[in-house]
Amino acid sequence: MLQAADIGLSYGDAPVLRGVGLDVARGDIVGILGPNGSGKTTLLRVLAGMLRPQAGRVLLDGRDVASIPRQLLARRLAVVPQEVHLAFDYTVLEIALMGRYPHLGAFELEGPSDVEIAREALEATGMLPFEHRAFDTLSGGEKQRVVIAAALAQLASDASRTRGPDDGAPGGSLLLLDEPTAALDLHYQIEVSGLIRRLNADRGMTMVLTTHDLNFAASVCHHLALLREGRVLAAGPVDQVLDAAAVEALYGVRADVQRHSGSGRLVVVPIGRVDPEVRRARQA
């Protein structure tokens, strides 16, 4: 569904992404893993068409995302940023309704069907009881769920509003999440993980997320791409990619990677730091 090939991008003289390729199939949950500064967020922004790479292309169903008009692209592809800070006091419902903007004409106001879609999206993330609350009064986890709801409202197609063959989401929709659990405590992490799995299972929603939390990645993703210093070290199904050698290569940390007997998921237990000299010798 989404293919990136040979993506190269540098900020000034500093290369951030070097020949990165990524393949996202429909219904997949792909995790982009890597340490701070590895280029995860930059890659996500390139995938979203928010940033144009200096080399390579990103194709959505075979079409270059750079060539898709912004408003049409926004109906198929939504981004959930790491954190949202508001300049003014919007209510939860107002934030969710902002997801409907790509579906409106230049001077059009949201109609009843848009409100319905926004409220359904809030319902799906469990935030409907908060619809009239001021966004700034919510906790970090609640805010995250509201922003995800806005993204769901953005991707929902509206039967009462059809404007041509490009409208709606004929090829399925894509949700990109930047560090969805980075600012959350354990309770909210579990809640957001559950929400991500549910959206994927119930709606077949394709997702790409960045994270540096190995256990979170192992618990929600189907495929992983390991990113270090702007290059893909390995990519593939979680079971094949996530092992002790990968953790060491990514973070310079010795770790046990085991299968948890209860959940059947891989869990990563960090043991200690790897001597940088040993690490360099092994990489050589």
Partner: peptide, 24 residues
């Protein structure tokens, strides 16, 4: 002023957010 308000709402979330919602 008739055309701007939606973009202004999204700017409150941040310029990147506005871009991801189809605003030029």
């Amino acid at each position: 002023f008739a055309w701007l308000p939606r973009a202004l709402n999204l700017f409150a979330l941040g310029a990147e957010h506005a871009a991801a919602r189809g605003i030029d």
